[in-house]
Amino acid sequence: MKIAVDAMGGDYAPTAIIEGVIAAIPDLEADAVVVLIGDEQVVRPMLEKYPVPEGRVEIVHAPEVIEMGEHPTKALTQKPASSISIGFKLLKEGAVNIFCSAGNTGAMTVGALFSIKAIEGLLRPAIAGIVPQIDGSQSIMLDIGANADCKPETLAQFGEIGSIYYKYTFNVEKPRVALMNIGEEDQKGSLVAQAAHVLLRDNKKINFIGNIEGKDFFTNKADVIVTDGFTGNIMYKLGESLYPISKIRGFKDQFIDQTNYEAIGGSPVLGVNGNVMIAHGVSSPLAIRNMLGLAYRQVKADAYRHIVKALS
């Protein structure tokens, strides 16, 4: 298995990326090889500072970098030798099994759509966030930012692809799918939410349990939480704020520690013909280390192929 990582993506790249990769190597199975994509003149001297096991890390030269503030489409067009562009080229060619980056999120999303493309039959790809639960389990929520405005049909499809991803990645036969809403009753919410509820309820391919509210976010009411990217992004970042607040307030809690973005590390892009993972721009070495662990699980689960089959 080859896990490609954008060595130049993120506010603290390439140092944090390389340190995270080095820390992750002992955690990963022996069949995992990390492919660092970036300026070789910068990456190789940094990598050589560490005792890297033979054959576990490779470098692919990419002399250009798409900066955080650049326009995604323009940057991908104007910088074909960027680490993100080359990462997607390798993924499309099958030279790597997954591409991960803490770089420009827009470029990662657009790059996925331009290279490996959306799965046929899918309305919109989504970014899925891993949500820790107070009992120690994990749920996923989608979308968390790729689609601010969603039609009911799009939300219904999120429920289906999220269920498939959860089933194969977390080994749960019938994941509980819920719609995030302002009340548990069927007729609650906006016109979009009400229509999405009907579509989710009528989809016999999923285990739809109805609406949940914001108070249920961390209480293991559902395995797959469906919402639009606007609401999802706000909720996800609110959840992530708990950890720094606990640090400021001076208390420690096992659950709160899991809301730290570093504990998860990455968010998969679902609905494209391949494995893509996006990390925080401020990713630390610990975040990169944990992202690589999740990336390995995602490749092993082969969830995207099951989504392709379901939508074909």
Rank of each mutant, 00 (worst) to 15 (best):
A107K: 05
C150S: 13
D135Y: 14
G103A: 10
I84W: 07
T73P: 00
G159F: 03
K174T: 13
I119T: 07
Q138F: 14
S139D: 13
M141S: 13
I164H: 07
V131A: 04
A112I: 02
L142A: 09
A128Q: 07
V110W: 06
N104H: 11
H71M: 11
E58T: 06
D149L: 02
Y165V: 00
P63Q: 07
K151R: 14
E93T: 07
K151T: 09
T154M: 04
I164N: 05
R176F: 02
I119H: 06
P152H: 03
S115T: 14
F88W: 02
I130W: 13
V60S: 07
K174Q: 13
K167P: 03
I144M: 08
I86A: 04
A95W: 00
S85K: 05
H71L: 10
K74S: 13
T105M: 08
V177S: 07
I144S: 09
F158K: 03
L142S: 09
E70F: 01
A178K: 13
A146F: 04
K89G: 09
F88V: 08
V131H: 08
G111P: 10
V60C: 10
P152T: 03
G103Y: 01
I140Y: 09
N171Q: 15
Y168F: 15
A95N: 13
A156S: 14
P132Y: 03
G145H: 05
A62W: 02
A118V: 07
H61C: 06
S115G: 04
R124M: 06
